[in-house]
């Protein structure tokens, strides 16, 4: 994942990687512009638009009122009219007030027009909890967006992927929902995950959608995750390795399109599957991943697949209660133990 730069490495947080990708694209494409709450003067509450208004000015980096329906709706129109807008829905939890603009307009206008118009826009939105921000500021809702046809959905786990996926999103002619986990941003008050801050090439590059990454190879069990789940999976793999269990870890990177082949290939090798998902347990990503494997081929499975997901309850404010609910490495190891007993 590293590229030789000829001098010392250049690590970026995901927040910086996102801002760099957007800035580089804005320099070469005058159609790219941003709208959102606190994205200009403040640089984004999650740091992912820092420096943009200083370089590109308030015409292209627009602070909006608290009016998601208006500015996301406006972006759909601007995209249809030839611009390439980027909008930020500050917390994905706020989707309730603007979902008509998102899934009836943004997601469907290409289809409704028979492909006659394009909707090249990026909706970036923060996900995830772990820092006691309670039930309206801590959800992931990956499956909610991945379920509805018409939107590509990406969720990076590290800064290298974050930059490449953002550049790809900006160049895509379809709407892309870019879901970034707050705990991976490198903003201390949201939690710290050093594994997300990695070497990032300064030059612009894209990462193809629909290609999962095998971030650790193993023989005995496949652990599939996205965003924060990848880091929990890697820590669980370390714990399992100390017990002589070899775990393979897959980072989905994009949910739509979903790289089912990489998952199936891995499970065919290991015979065991654990899915880690900070989104709700039922009707979600974890069920879709497991179904994608078992509807394809049951024969290679040595044990029933397991999921480590968020319980089907509103997210608690209380730190002990929230931490009790969140996926973590210990729960992944326990899931493996359940399979080993099967």
């Amino acid at each position: 994942m590293t590229e030789q730069t000829g001098r010392n490495e250049r690590r970026l947080t995901i927040a910086r990687a996102m801002a760099e990708a957007v800035a580089q694209e804005m320099r070469i494409d005058p159609r790219v512009f941003l709208m959102g709450e606190d994205i200009a003067t403040l640089g984004g509450v999650f740091g992912n638009t820092r420096g943009l208004v200083e370089e590109f000015g308030p015409e292209r980096v627009r602070d909006t009122p608290i009016s998601e329906t208006a500015f996301i709706g406006a972006a759909v129109g601007a995209a249809a009219d030839g611009m390439r807008p980027v909008v930020e829905l500050m917390f994905v939890d706020f989707f309730g007030v603007c979902m008509d603009a998102i899934y009836n307009l943004m997601a469907k206008n290409i289809y409704f027009s028979g492909g006659g118009i394009k909707v090249p826009m990026v909706l970036m939105t923060s996900t995830g909890g772990g820092y006691s921000d309670a039930g309206q500021h801590s959800q992931c809702l990956y499956a909610t967006f991945a379920h509805l046809p018409g939107m590509k959905v990406v969720a990076p786990s590290n800064a290298y992927d974050a930059k490449g996926l953002m550049t790809a999103a900006l160049r895509d002619d379809s709407p892309v929902v870019y879901m970034f986990h707050k705990g991976l941003q490198g903003m201390g008050w949201l939690g710290t995950e050093p594994g997300a801050t990695v070497d990032v090439p300064e030059t612009s590059y894209t990462l193809p959608f629909g290609q999962a990454a095998v971030v650790r190879e193993g023989r005995d069990v496949t652990i599939v995750g996205l965003a924060m789940g990848v880091h929990n999976a890697l820590k669980a793999a370390d714990d399992l390795a100390r017990r002589g269990v070899s775990a393979e870890v897959i980072d989905l990177r994009t949910l739509v399109p979903l790289d089912r082949d990489t998952i199936r290939r891995s499970v065919a090798k290991t015979g065991r599957l654990i899915v880690v998902d900070e989104d709700y347990h039922s009707f979600g990503v974890s069920g879709e991943i497991i179904a994608s494997v078992v509807e394809h081929d049951l024969r290679g499975l040595k044990a029933p697949p397991q999921r480590v997901a968020y319980p089907d309850v509103p997210i608690p404010f209380s730190r002990p209660m929230e931490q009790f609910c969140l996926p973590n490495p210990a729960k992944i190891v326990q899931a493996f133990d359940r399979m080993a007993q099967a």
Partner: peptide, 13 residues
């Protein structure tokens, strides 16, 4: 300290 953007032992300018 929220993030180190260079590795321990790295050559920096």
């Amino acid at each position: 300290v929220t993030a180190w953007l260079a590795r321990d032992g790295a050559e920096v300018r």
